[in-house]
Nucleic acid binder design. Structure first.
Lengths: 203, 203
DNA sequence: ACCTGAACACCGTTCAAGT
DNA sequence: ACCTGAACACCGTTCAAGT
């Protein structure tokens, strides 16, 4: 532990990895740049070469979170057999389980920020939204809902899942209740959109 | 500024008031006990007599937030004229506007916490839930949904509104989009629950 | 019961200097 | 290009002591 070269060579990745662990195990308040540097075996000023400040590190974490969440949702949907309702359910469940596994990270990803998300975070979030949209699109053909309702339904399901996730993370409901709510939401959304073919937003 | 009595007499309330302002204007990261003490004109140790630590202050803020939100939702619902759908819409809109006015506070109220909310916060949150439940109950009689669906529908609408609020606060959608989504959600939920009288959660 | 003020350990951030 | 290490200003928290 003494002949480590001057250049770490891997510092950025190591910091992010450690940061995710701290976030998961001890929450965002316990996340300190100095501690991360200490554990990486570098001086406390070193992280500055990779993250301009603590917030930049948090942004990078949020960005990675969105990418991972999008991947997990897409995979879950791809593996789901059968009709589009089951696909939606699988995607939604994957979303909820991500929040269950990484509550602090999920919080960070959707935290209220005065100036909005950084471009990188925004792009990663859009990736998730695109994934959800393409999954929602599979329900158009079989006589489900109309193609022009996809955007709105995606947003509606997305916000609902996000709300369920927040309720679980803040211990307002249990995970089981959350999954039941997800089922209800999908059923009602789909049924409502397919049955009431008149525009739902009509006054 | 020199003949102030030893006992502030009002410190707890002043700290909370100032804290809400800081939270609103500069976010949770800018909230410092020492600064609050400074602005209240007391020593930095003084807040300790009222809040055991920073987290206790945050809990008190969240608790007050839930009480205020419940009040605003109840009032909005009471003032809403006409049928229960409009009442629900008014209640939901009040909820969204609270999040718009106090994004950081709303974040705090629904933040993921490892050990769950404190008893006081939990009680205040329940007050909000009770308010939502009683509003949702007004839709039972007129041939809307079944009485045994009220609990589930309340939870579903609550999570959905929360999700919409989070999407707005994190700049994922605009406030106008959020209100449109709320309309859609209410329409679909009500329509789905009233029309499909078979249990929505049935597999 | 409430507040003061010193003390302690910890931060984030900056920046000249080194490699 | 990346890292070191001193320096600065700021925290939260504790606690004996004052009123």
């Amino acid at each position: 532990m003494s002949d480590r070269p001057f250049h770490h060579g891997n510092l950025r990745a190591v910091l992010l990895e450690q940061a995710e662990t701290v976030l998961r195990e001890r929450g965002i308040d316990a996340l300190s740049l100095r501690e991360l540097a200490r554990e990486a075996g570098v001086s406390h000023g070193a992280p500055r070469s990779h993250f301009i400040d603590r917030n930049a590190l948090l942004d990078a974490l949020a960005e990675r979170g969105f990418v991972r969440l999008a991947d997990e949702v897409r995979e879950a949907a791809a593996k789901a057999p059968g009709d589009y309702v089951r696909t939606l359910r699988a995607a939604g469940t994957a979303y909820l389980r991500f929040g269950l596994r990484e509550p602090a990270l999920a919080d960070l990803m959707f935290a209220a920020k005065a100036d909005g998300p950084s471009p990188a975070v925004s792009a990663a979030a859009e990736r998730l939204f695109d994934t959800m949209t393409s999954i929602m699109s599979t329900g158009v053909a079989p006589g489900g809902y109309d193609a022009r309702d996809v955007g709105r339904l995606t947003l509606l399901l997305g916000t609902t899942i996000q709300g369920i996730s927040a309720f679980i993370a803040s211990h307002r409901i249990t995970a089981a209740q959350g999954e039941a709510l997800l089922d209800d939401a999908i059923t009602l959304f789909i049924a409502g959109a397919a049955a009431g073919r008149q525009s739902p937003s009509g006054k």
